[in-house]
Design a protein around this nucleic acid. Structure first.
Length: 678
DNA sequence: ATGAGCTAGCTTTTT
DNA sequence: GCTAGCTCAT
């Protein structure tokens, strides 16, 4: 008998979305409408109904976290039947899996390394240097973002169509060519390549495309509004044979356009796939009516959206509170007081402060430290981006993959082996001229006795050690954890950390210990390195009862009983840069961000702004965000935390023309007047 | 080959 | 006001 119990607690729209499984389907899922539930139930339904074996289902997410969550929830419904879901993962991890099988089709070996943004930047700097490009005039970051943009468009260097109005692009293209060749020489790919190479392989080898597209009877995509052009092409290839593709997303929550996401993919899905069925999930299970109304009214100001009407059967709840403060300090103080009050009804884990820019957390941190309120900051520096962790990984990578020059370069003088810039340059030159790896070049130069004696000593030791570690790994079959321990000890890295006794170094040692323990979750070096390349953080730190601080971007997909949204000031939110760079489009994305922020709240939402802020070394006077004027009065409770005796003519909704110059002389005079009245 | 000293830039950051 | 990243001097 079929166990379809999991279908019982779905509403009508959800039910339809779960059981409509043949043909293209777009699920427009509003915030808190049970999108993950629908996705996981769909997978379970397909398997239970014997429409597909688990390994014939392709389920794609953007983050590892979302993939993991989906896996867990499917397992909960299906038990061990869900074990064969081998194609559930992120765009990048699935692409890497495919690419490892067909690496030779693009000139790579199957053990290729995956480099991160840091390595990308180093590579581009190296190339710029070699090509005599002044990095002060042309910043490596701009070059990199151009290359990434081209890759997102699906362009190899030969495919690039230059924008004639940007005369610099010609230079960028030269670098792109060298960069791409260099990656092949290094037997490496960057993130963009993982997907781009796959698409190119599918394009050029119809037989390979067919293998996969025939295999994937059903395709499911999460957060479809965040896909870029190349990802949508990738999906198109894989969906070619069965044409059973379902995408879930919310156009109102598209906040990653600066990462190449094209909301167009979502809005024009039914143009790419004929006879698309569209189902809307509009019942919200998360927030109170007041919160929902505020968010809905705000987002209605956007032009480019599918449009939907979220509703809830839940209670009205508290009014959304809107607070005006004189200073950021007042804001932090009052919010911390409110937290103390809410603590009686909610756990700190269920409260969050969501900010536009991460520097805003500082004021709160200081306050919380002062009053001893436990907090955690989510985001910021990622675990795998820390220098000591990257050093460890680089050691492992060079042992594992001898063409990985970037890793070799990273560790060649860490710890210090008296191999300075000149020697490194010498090795680089030699490698380039003879088309060999840095490691091979170093060996050759020693043979030819062209290295300074002192440097030679250090270099020989390192080269011998690398040989030895490879032998440990390949022949002696020493496990990956033990291997790293051996490397750290023999290279002198451990000693280096122990010698310098300060807080910083103790942290580093702690981090490495954590890395070693994280390695236990993996069977071998290969799978660990794959994970490291595609992951950013180690799951942890949810222990204890702490208030959460994070950016609104980082809050997507999460929910909290109580949410604080401070710093709603013109210039900060919507961010000035966003508007300067992308105009109306930028503004709409900022508004979507506000929408994401508000809809994180289940029971209580507090929006606030400060009249005054210390920003980039100066005190600046602030105006309330234009978004505040867009919120519906009837769902708000306004609190003015400015002493009325001192300022008589303060009005909550300042009647200011935003479209003109924000810091017009008149505006400045007005602000001065306010100040002198204080 | 390390550190003082200066300058520029300062949003978000799923992989 | 802070800091990363580079330059120049030791």
């Amino acid at each position: 008998m079929l166990n379809l119990e999991y279908l019982n607690d779905l509403n009508e729209a959800q039910n339809e979305a779960v059981s409509y499984i043949d043909g293209p389907l777009l699920i427009v899922a509003g915030a808190g409408s049970g999108k993950t539930k629908v996705l996981t139930s769909r997978i379970a339904y397909m398997i239970k109904q014997k429409r597909a074996f688990p390994n014939q289902i392709l389920a794609v997410t953007f983050t590892n976290k979302a993939a993991k969550e989906m896996q867990n929830r499917v397992s909960k419904i299906l038990g061990k039947e869900a074990t064969g879901l081998s194609w559930l993962g992120t765009f990048h991890s699935i692409s890497a899996k495919i690419l490892r099988k067909h690496a030779q089709a693009v000139g790579l070996k199957s053990n290729f390394s995956i480099i991160d943004q840091d390595d990308q930047l180093r590579l581009i700097k190296n190339i710029s240097k070699a090509e005599n490009i002044d990095i002060k005039k042309i910043s490596p970051n701009v070059i990199l973002s151009t290359i990434d943009r081209w890759k997102n468009k699906g362009w190899y260097p030969d495919d690039v169509i230059l924008n004639k109005r940007d005369h610099l692009e010609k230079n960028f293209l030269e670098i792109y060519k060298i960069y791409q060749n260099k990656l092949i020489d290094l037997n490496s790919t960057d993130f963009g390549d993982l997907i781009l190479h796959c698409v190119k392989i599918f394009e050029r080898n119809k037989d390979i495309e067919e293998i996969y597209s025939k295999n994937f009877k059903y395709i499911l995509v999460d957060e479809y509004q965040d896909t870029n052009h190349i990802q949508s092409k990738w999906l198109l290839s894989l969906a070619k044979y069965h044409n059973n593709i379902s995408c879930v997303g919310d156009d109102d929550q598209s906040i990653y356009s600066w990462r190449g996401a094209e909301i167009k993919n979502f809005l024009e899905f039914d143009k790419i796939y004929e006879n698309t069925k569209i189902i809307r999930l509009e019942k919200n299970y998360r927030s109170t009516q007041n919160i929902l109304s505020v968010a809905s009214k705000l987002i209605e100001n956007n032009q480019s959206r599918v449009g939907k009407n979220l509703f809830t059967n839940g209670e009205n709840g508290d009014l959304v509170s809107l607070n005006c403060y004189r200073s950021v300090k007042d804001e932090a103080t009052d919010i911390s007081d409110k937290i103390e009050k809410y603590k009686k009804d909610f756990s700190l884990n269920n409260m969050a402060i969501l900010v536009r820019a991460i520097f805003q957390t500082r004021e709160f941190e200081e306050r919380f430290l002062k009053i001893g309120l436990p907090y955690r900051i989510i985001g910021g520096i990622k675990f795998y981006e820390r220098a000591e962790i990257k050093d460890c990984i680089a050691y492992l990578k060079i042992v594992h993959q001898d063409q990985d020059d970037l890793s070799f370069e990273r560790i060649i003088n860490v710890p210090k082996r008296s191999i300075g810039e000149t020697s490194l340059k010498q090795i680089n030159e030699f490698a380039k001229n003879n088309k060999i790896t840095l490691e091979a070049a170093a060996k050759k130069l020693i043979e030819k006795n062209e290295i300074k004696p002192k440097t030679k000593l250090g270099l020989i030791t390192l080269l011998n050690q690398i040989e030895k570690w490879r032998n440990d790994f390949v022949n002696k079959k020493i496990g990956h954890i033990k291997l790293l321990q051996i490397i750290l000890d023999e290279s002198g890295y451990s000693q280096m950390l122990k010698n310098k006794k300060d807080l910083e170094n103790e942290n580093r040692i702690e981090n490495i210990k954590e890395l070693l323990s994280a390695m236990k979750d993996f069977d071998n070096l290969e799978s660990f390195l794959e994970h490291v390349s595609l992951a950013t953080s180690i799951d942890k730190n949810w222990e204890g009862d702490k208030i959460n601080l994070m950016s609104m971007h980082a809050s997507k997909g999460l929910e909290f009983d109580v949410v604080f949204l401070p710093g709603w000031e013109e210039g900060l939110f919507p961010h000035q840069k966003s508007i300067e760079e992308k105009g109306e489009k930028g503004l709409e994305e900022e508004r979507r961000l506000a929408y994401v922020g508000i809809t994180r709240a289940k029971k209580i939402a507090n929006i606030s702004f400060s009249m005054n802020r210390f920003y980039q070394g100066d005190w600046i006077d602030c105006l309330a965000s234009r978004f505040i004027d867009e919120l519906p009065e009837e769902n708000l409770k306004k609190n003015n935390h400015i002493n009325h005796d001192q300022i008589e003519d303060f009005e909550f909704n300042q009647d200011v023309e935003f479209d003109g110059e924000i810091q017009s002389p008149g505006w400045k005079r007005y602000q001065k007047k306010l100040k002198s009245n204080r």
